[in-house]
């Protein structure tokens, strides 16, 4: 039983250590600004088209699904409210994070994993560079900046998707829709909707880097690291969203 627990506990310990070193490096020189911007471009700009797609369709689907339920109570006019709350609080942050985890936690793990098995990370240390400073910290900063932005975009596009469904299929006017959506959102929802992507950003970047950096066993090991990174990042995103929601929601 103890042996079974040993590995996850060790991994978690490594994660905490890596997080500590990566965050401490944010305040230390040298800073690799070019790497930060390059990663922002790869992760932020690169994910934009697919984030827009996902945002649009998740908003539309929410509007369609909820329309029937609301019709039971004759409250179809409140569709904007439902779409806004689900998107901003939950769907926007989680779907965007899952998407970025699939795209970039895997990308980071395989890139760093390949560097590890081809001794580039050792070479970096031998040539006077701290791999955490050069590889991990820039990715952490880049994702922490772009993921909240991507989430805001996904939320907004999702609301537009909901609007299109509401006006075309449910004959609700745009002003009715947006007023209901706007009035539904409270300060609490917005904070929650931005704290989540920030926490997910830390998970995605550090899980990707951790599995990449501890890769062993050649190219096969790189494949394994990539899979593990996506699986762990996704699971932790759901666990974290539950914990954050629990903190914000008082029943």
């Amino acid at each position: 039983m103890l042996d079974l627990l040993k590995k996850p506990v060790e991994t978690f310990q490594e994660f905490v250590l890596l997080a500590g070193r990566a965050i401490r490096n944010i305040f230390r020189s040298p800073h690799y600004g070019d790497d930060i911007f390059q990663q922002m471009d790869i992760i932020g700009v690169g994910s934009l088209p697919i984030v827009i797609m996902i945002g649009f369709f998740s908003g539309s689907v929410m509007a369609l699904q909820m329309a029937r339920a609301l019709a039971t109570y004759g409250a179809q006019g409140q569709i904007g409210q439902i779409v806004a709350i689900t998107l901003v609080r939950e769907l926007g942050p989680v779907l965007t994070a899952i998407l970025v985890a699939g795209r970039n936690a895997s990308g980071i793990a395989s890139e760093l994993g390949s560097m590890k098995v081809s001794e580039q990370i050792d070479a970096m240390r031998a040539l006077g560079t701290d791999p955490i400073q050069k590889l991990v910290t820039p990715r952490l900063i880049a994702i922490a900046v772009v993921l909240p932005l991507l989430t805001i975009i996904a939320d907004f596009i999702g609301l537009i998707g909901g609007n299109i469904i509401a006006s075309t299929l449910l004959s609700i006017t745009a002003s009715q829709y947006w007023t209901s959506a706007w009035q539904a959102l409270e300060y609490n929802d917005l904070v929650q909707g931005l704290v989540k992507p920030f926490a997910f950003a830390i998970i995605i970047s550090l899980v990707g880097c951790l599995y990449g950096i501890r890769t062993t066993g050649g190219t096969q090991g790189v494949g394994k690291a990539t899979t593990q990174a996506v699986v762990s990042a996704s699971v932790w995103i759901f666990v974290t969203t539950f914990m954050i929601t629990k903190m914000f929601v008082r029943i």
């Binding site: 390949s114 560097m115 081809s118 001794e119 580039q120 050792d122 070479a123 970096m124 031998a126």
Partner: peptide, 13 residues
């Protein structure tokens, strides 16, 4: 003060 040649060169891709 040390030069290190890694097995596959260890060059940065």
């Amino acid at each position: 003060r040390i030069g290190f040649l890694f097995q596959e060169g260890g060059l940065f891709d």
